[in-house]
């Protein structure tokens, strides 16, 4: 379950050491944009040691490495792969070949470390016009890919438009990415809302992302985590409905019926799949069915 993903600058020890207390389902240790070129090696060591010594139970560890057009990315992977981050966030993924290049190096590292293939997942960061247009092909490039991730700041620069709070300039990219990810059977995460002082703006932006079909949303501020978690937590109504769907399916099965309707709507495979996802999230959060 990843409702929220919080970026933590790889060169900020105070935040790294407290990263498991800030409430997000996942943290993204950032070795890329947050870290100046002359601090890349220090950040790499700090992140490696955080993963090695800190207890992050209950909080997933993701690492944003540098993009494959830099000379940092392989060294980034060399340092962090031994500590099994759940995902590597690969910036500026524009083509399936970019994802495959990372996959190939990660496969080699996994062999060297004696890990099973795909122990560490890959999450392409789509933040160029080319990446958006290639999003389905990227999402389907390798089984290592578990999710797509939208990065709106770089994307709007590439699109030569202004990034706004309302986000009309990224409407197409958002819906395109959700569609591509769902078509490829992977998750999809929304870009951070960057105004850390706009408490209403983050609510609207997170609600929009959920309405569009995103699995969760990233954040650059710990202050946004609680809102994101709240928005991406299934409501009691959604949870109750999911259980009703599963009850209806069980009943249909018991009665030997092939199809069944609930509240006048046919319960088909996608509805069942969604109900299962909702129940899995609710169970992970310890939310029970409302027995009224």
């Amino acid at each position: 379950m990843r409702r929220s993903m919080l970026f933590l600058p790889g060169n900020n020890p105070n935040l790294l050491i407290n990263g498991n207390c800030l409430g997000s389902d996942a943290v993204i240790f950032d070795l890329e944009d947050a870290v100046a070129p002359d601090q890349k090696d220090a950040a790499r060591i700090l992140v490696r040691n955080t993963m090695r010594y800190m207890d992050f139970r209950g909080v997933e560890m993701i690492v944003r490495i540098n993009s494959i057009d830099t000379h940092y990315w392989k060294r980034d992977l060399d340092e962090v792969m031994p500590y099994k981050p759940s995902l590597i966030l690969l910036p500026k993924t524009g083509t399936p070949a970019d994802a495959l290049a990372a996959d190939e190096y990660m496969t080699a590292l996994e062999q060297k470390l004696g890990f099973e293939k795909n122990t560490v997942g890959l999450m392409p960061l789509i933040e160029t016009a080319l990446g958006v247009e290639n999003s389905f092909a990227i999402a389907s490039a390798t089984k290592r890919i578990q999710a797509l991730f939208l990065g709106a700041e770089d994307l709007t620069a590439d699109l030569q438009c202004k990034r706004t709070k309302e986000g009309r300039e990224i409407e197409y990219a958002r819906t395109r990415l959700v569609t591509a990810a769902r078509a490829a059977g992977v998750d999809v995460y929304d870009t951070p809302f960057t105004d850390v002082n706009d408490d209403e703006g983050i609510v609207k932006d997170a609600e929009l992302a959920k309405a569009l079909g995103f699995t969760g949303k990233s954040s650059i501020s710990p202050r946004h985590v609680e809102v994101i978690n709240r928005v991406f937590t299934p409501t009691q109504k959604e949870i109750d409905y999911a259980y009703e769907v599963m009850d209806a399916i069980a009943e249909a099965k018991a009665q030997g019926k092939g199809a069944i309707a609930l509240y006048g709507k046919m319960v088909d495979a996608p509805i069942v799949a969604r109900a299962q996802r909702t129940i899995a999230t609710a169970e992970a959060l310890g939310i029970r069915r409302d027995m009224v």
Binding site: N14, L15, N18, C21, L22, G23, P222, R223, E226
Partner: peptide
């Protein structure tokens, strides 16, 4: 400070 805010919440 994010840690202070977590404690406060």
């Amino acid at each position: 400070d994010p840690v202070g805010l977590v404690m406060a919440a």
